[in-house]
């Protein structure tokens, strides 16, 4: 069978829908990974031991096992204990928590690097410990680690292809659907790759924009 790229445009809508879901699941998982990453970092550094140890175990589990397995566990495994999540939700939770653990590591390093004087400056004004962490330390830490977090978000976009295996009709799965109809894997995988690349370009431009915007405020 020879290569025939002319069949790709007729599946344009399908790939567009796939791209849409890829963007949606990446965005939702990115937000979750960011918020949960901050939470995990704060608990790891300031939380009571009662919370710190279970969270460390949680982090260790998510870092030490394959993301694919985690997705299976959340989507297929949890049903057995009565938690039946839609594939999209399971995908967001799996991707989100997995990357939250990585983000948390980075944010922890950012928090530790915030100058001690910032803490003293805030406490001297009368802010409580919690207020100081929430309003002074964490915002500065997060700003300082935007570049590595951004790298994680690019990895997240690419790893979102894994949720195709639990049946989310994102970009990779829609490419596979087109292939199963046309038997032209080369063309459609390449087309999907091009879509990922385009989304990535936009994401990177967005990240650069954020980095530029916070440059003064550091």
């Amino acid at each position: 069978m020879g290569l025939d790229f002319t069949i790709v445009p007729s599946y344009f809508t399908l790939l567009l829908i796939g791209s849409g879901w890829t963007i949606a699941i990446t965005a939702a998982a990115a937000v979750l990974s960011f918020v949960a990453g901050i939470l995990l970092a704060v608990i790891a550094l300031y939380g009571p031991a009662l919370l710190r140890y279970p969270f460390r175990l949680f982090a260790w589990l998510f870092m030490g096992t394959p993301l694919l397995l985690q997705l299976f566990l959340i989507y297929f495994g949890l049903i057995q204990i009565g938690i039946d999540l839609p594939a999209f939700v399971a995908g967001v939770i799996g991707l989100g928590l997995h990357f939250a653990v990585y983000n948390s590591d980075i944010i922890q390093a950012g928090i530790v690097a915030v100058d001690r004087g910032q803490y003293e400056g805030a406490r001297t004004l009368g802010l409580s410990r919690v207020q100081t962490i929430a309003r002074i330390v964490v915002p500065q830490a997060v700003r300082s680690v935007i570049p590595p977090i951004g790298n994680n978000m690019i990895a997240l976009l690419k790893d979102s292809a894994l949720v195709s295996v639990i049946g989310v009709t994102e970009l990779t799965l829609t490419a596979q659907l087109a292939i199963s109809k046309t038997f032209h894997p080369f063309e459609f995988y390449l087309a999907a790759a091009a879509c990922y690349y385009l989304i990535n370009l936009v994401l990177e431009a967005g990240l650069r924009h954020i980095e530029r915007r916070i440059q003064l405020a550091r």
Partner: peptide, 30 residues
């Protein structure tokens, strides 16, 4: 501490806030 102002050798201004934000933060919060 709200009644005791302090100024440090290394300023300890909050770099993520503007001058306005630095000054209004504590009065607004506290």
């Amino acid at each position: 501490r709200q009644q005791i102002g302090m100024v440090f050798q290394h300023f300890n201004l909050f770099p993520h806030l503007t001058v306005r934000g630095n000054i209004t933060l504590a009065p607004k919060m506290l």
